[in-house]
């Protein structure tokens, strides 16, 4: 590609350093371009800033604004109440329970996704015949969308005809009301979510493992480190930036979980899986309580902003080397 580039070709053909004439031309050109740049900058950045402005910056400010008011059923602000909405939320047991449930969900999903994804990646990172087939299978859940995952797993969790309870019956274990028992409902949505995240996480970890130079392991072999020692003292430190990246991505993604909850539990039973985003949706679009929903949105935004911010800070430091 570089070779097909016209200027390189021409220089090769004439086979001499650019003469004074050419340099002058370059300077003039640069000068003109710099004058042009401003116009191009408007042209190139305009559309993006327009879209970001209307659908990201404005709504953020608007949400912040709404969170300081009471609203009518159309979402129009009526009475300024200052931080009262926030105080109400922080003293609401139901909301605190929702925060707690979200915390359990996010930590559960992140931890198990990382453990399972890393396990799959480590197992797939060897040179044996047919390994490509397994790698393809491990990435397969990447192609499965929220609603499809939810439907597949809803069927498995079905208390009477679902395969999980059938297996339980077969093994003479007690059957479980997967989605209608508050504790098991959380387990069920976490499981489904981990399964959904698995393909992507596997792919990222696998790529990271492959990029660790082989000679590091050769050197460790020669110097007498067991493969267990190598995993903890070479592999994990080497992929720590990826490890961290996956953790943050998964956390943010599970904080935003909506479709899964909507399809599988609708926030139930008794609010056990009423996670933050689902709450926002219900308060705003089911109950018409836009001020409360806006306040909840700001809380969510703050949480996610903090995580993202930490990610940037630490990625800039490249974690540990």
């Amino acid at each position: 590609m570089i070779n097909s580039f016209p200027s390189v070709k021409r220089r090769r053909q004439t086979n001499q350093a650019p003469g004074p004439k050419e340099e002058v031309r370059a300077n003039v050109k640069n000068f003109e371009l710099q004058k042009n740049d401003k116009y191009y900058a408007w042209l190139f950045l305009g559309p993006s800033f327009l879209v970001l402005g209307i659908f990201v910056f404005y709504p953020m400010l608007r949400t912040l604004y709404l969170s300081l008011f009471l609203t009518d059923s159309f979402g129009r602000p009526t009475v300024f109440v200052g931080l009262q909405n926030y105080l109400n939320l922080l003293t609401s047991k139901v909301y605190m329970a929702s925060i707690q449930a979200t915390g359990v969900y996010v930590i559960g999903v992140t931890a198990f996704t990382i453990i399972c994804g890393l396990l799959l990646a480590a197992v797939a990172n060897q040179k044996i015949r047919g390994i490509e087939f397994f790698r393809t299978i491990f990435t397969a859940t990447m192609g499965v969308s929220v609603s499809v995952s939810a439907i597949f797993w809803l069927f498995m969790f079905n208390p009477s005809i679902g395969v999980l309870n059938q297996i339980a019956l077969f093994l003479h274990l007690p059957t479980v009301n997967w989605l209608t028992n508050p504790h098991w409902a959380m387990v069920s949505v976490i499981t489904t979510s981990v399964w959904m995240h698995l393909g992507f996480t596997f792919l990222i970890f696998f790529g990271a493992l492959q990029s660790v130079p082989k000679t590091l392991y050769d050197a460790a072999d020669v110097s007498g480190a067991s493969s267990r020692y190598q995993f903890f003292h070479i592999t994990l430190p080497m992929i720590s930036p990826t490890f961290f990246f996956v953790a943050v991505i998964t956390m943010i993604s599970s904080f935003k979980s909506f479709g899964l909850i909507d399809l599988m539990t609708a926030g139930g039973p008794t609010n056990a899986t009423n996670l933050l985003v689902y709450r926002i949706y219900k308060d705003a679009f089911v109950d018409g309580n836009y001020a409360v929903a806006s306040t909840e949105s700001i809380v969510l935004a703050i949480i996610i902003a903090i995580i993202t911010f930490i990610q940037f800070k630490l990625l800039a430091k490249r974690v540990n080397y």
Binding site: P59, K256, F258, L300
Partner: peptide
């Protein structure tokens, strides 16, 4: 803007 989740902005966006 990467820090701002779309899910937290659906109310004004819907109105827009």
């Amino acid at each position: 803007t990467m820090m701002l989740p779309f899910e937290a902005e659906v109310i004004p966006n819907f109105q827009t």
